[in-house]
Amino acid sequence: MNREAQLEAIFGAFRGTEGPLLPILHEVQHTFGCVDPAAEATIAHELNLSRAEVHGVVSFYHDFSATSDPRPCIELCRAEACQARGVEALVPAAEQAAGTRVKLKTVYCLGLCSVGPAARVGERVHARLDSAALIKLVHSV
């Protein structure tokens, strides 16, 4: 299926939805790995919005990106509760292990605050991480 057809399929799934922009952006991000300027223009046309309006929304939320990043991604929680459980001490070694191959992304809270430090890879969550476990996780993705 080409890009236009994929976008059309996404739009079709949300016709009749109230306030469809965020669900559409999630689908586009999921399908293409990003919401690039061309997709913004198509979405704007579909929803009868200006491109600026769509771009404003895309750039506001952390979940949407303008360019795709094919690297595997580990989302590491660095909020207060995980800081209290020592996540900051794990970061330098994890960054070194990740290098440029793995994206180590900071998130604020995965809701695992009693068993941190915590991380998420896609739908899988990991807790009680120490340095060795986090480095192992980095190597495993």
């Binding site: 109230e18 306030g19 469809p20 922009l21 965020l22 669900p23 952006l25 999630h26 929803l47 404003g56 929304v57 506001f60 939320y61 952390h62 979940d63 949407f64 998130v107 604020y108």
Partner: peptide, 26 residues
């Protein structure tokens, strides 16, 4: 169910409503 997009401020009720409407979470 509506899924947020990583903005902490959307926990504030009016910005949450904007977000459901498909706007910036202001």
């Amino acid at each position: 169910v509506r899924v947020g997009a990583g903005a902490y401020v959307c926990g504030e009720e009016t910005s949450l409503l904007n977000s459901i409407e498909g706007k910036r979470g202001e």
